[in-house]
Design a protein around this nucleic acid. Sequence first.
DNA 1: CAAGTAATAT
DNA 2: GATATTACTT
Length: 347
Amino acid sequence: MIKKLSIMDYNRERCGQYIEALEEERRKILVFQRELPLCLDLVTQSIERCKREITETGTDNVYGQSECSEQTTGQCTPVLEQFLTIKDSSTSNEEEVEEELEDEQGNHDPENDSEDKNMKSDWLKSVQLWNQPDPLLPKEEQSQQMMETEVKRDESMREDPMANSGERRRRETERKQRRCWSSQLHRRFLNALQHLGGPHVATPKQIREFMKVDGLTNDEVKSHLQKYRLNRRRPSQTVPNNGNSQKQHFVVVGGLWVPQSDYSTGKTTRGASTSGTTTTTTTTTTTTTGIYGAMAPPPAPQWPSHFNFTPSIIVDEGSGSHSEEVVVRCSSPAMSSSTRNYYVTKN
DNA sequence: CAAGTAATAT
DNA sequence: GATATTACTT
């Protein structure tokens, strides 16, 4: 009898301490939620779970062993509402593997007592680095376990200027089919960039070789790089000061402007397949692909939201250092000693 | 040929 | 308007 109670109390106590620790952790992570969205989500979920356990101990089951396998972070105890300012995250769809970077190839985490197993298995599914417009593909298995070190891209899709059965093509100047940079592809891009010493040092060719994405051309990388550089030069400046002060709170941390709530705007419609346990009844498909009909499946890839065009934070590795350390430093708008080689057309 | 940049197309 | 492709210059 008493024993039981004492155990209960003990557990509760421990849980409480754990929660405290977690919350503290979360506060820290919150600052970098842009870089560590999943991390934050994890911690949040953990906190929820713990709290739930505590609150439920009042009744009978001491160990809230209920796995509470809720898929989304939705319906939760309102207790920690204060911390959930980000709320809308709906990060059920993980395609954002945080800054793990390198682990892409060798990630083997067979032992995952934690709840983070469901993630990371997901982004592997969304393999298609290239949103290859292909309505025909069932999109299910398709190209599943490839990827790994080298990603392959179906070359057949490519419109060959030559191979046209009839020369109905518009002459040889057939514009390439437009393809988007999926977030994963972009990750590789960033990864390469980082290892090559920053966007201003890395050259398209190097990047392409580093990415090891089959079918990726130099020009594509070059273009992407160009855009990347431009976007990073002056990311804001649009929307001078919209009257709506909404929830764009910014926090100054160590001289860095960090958006307090962000990242969640994506809200991709793609059903997060979540953990592999049992078939998820999520509709997945039926995404109202309004435009383009069956062209590009998900509207997912949106740069502004989840690509790391970190406005004022440059994450670049010391060019020479091979260590894992990543230096985060502020980039003054006037920095970037980009030697502007402006060539004036002098004919 | 490769990289940067500008122009153009979607 | 944003993003990708192409054209052009170096």
